[in-house]
Amino acid sequence: MGWVWARLKLRTTCDWKGVWGRVKPRTPCWSGENHELMRHYGSLPLGQVYANIWFAVKSFVDEVAAVPGGEHIRNCIQCGVCTGTCPAASEMEYPPRKIIALIRAGMRHEVLSSPSMWHCVSCYLCTVRCPRDIKPTEIAHALECLAIRQGFRVQGTRTPAMYRSFVDSVQRNGRVHEFGMMLKFYLTTNPLAALKITKVGLQLLLHKRMPLLPKKVKGREDLSRIIQRFRAVRSSA
């Protein structure tokens, strides 16, 4: 058992090229899933153990290069145009140029537990200006997905909670219901912070720009069936 946990830790803390070679994982693997499986079976199924080893030996830069938009990450010449251009750079511990350097150095843990990419405002300035066709915007969002998928707890940003409230609202209603989303966001983060924007909220309400109840959308059930089916198709592929 200790051996499994050692792999788990290894997987998330460094890029380790071991003697195991590459083993195709049985299921995509992330910490949340490991916890679930452990709780259910008392130990990890062999396939999942393989999956963990696979993630341990797979290099971080390969993983990022495999996501749409990350393909050209190896071409980065570290010129810094992206960071120089980024309106959110001042809020980021690792602005775009630096985060790319960290990815290429295999520093998975530092990158995925960082709040930096969660400050990206999707302005795409870096993407249109990069002289090497790298898409730092896509990389930022891909890192967010990886961080969530691999169960990293990110401190120092409320963006993940906001995105989660958004997605929950879409999955429930078919369309995002803005009031419901805001309510959930403030309740799950810091209800007191909502006080600061009471004036904004009231004005939106008074100007009929904030309906309190979600609309019943015709395609709502269809959409959830499509999503369920897609999840099944994807995990069996």
Partner: peptide, 15 residues
């Protein structure tokens, strides 16, 4: 019967 386009918040959690 249109539904959400799958905007940035969604694609930041699951592309």
């Amino acid at each position: 019967g249109w539904t959400c386009c799958g905007s940035t918040p969604y694609s930041s959690l699951d592309r």
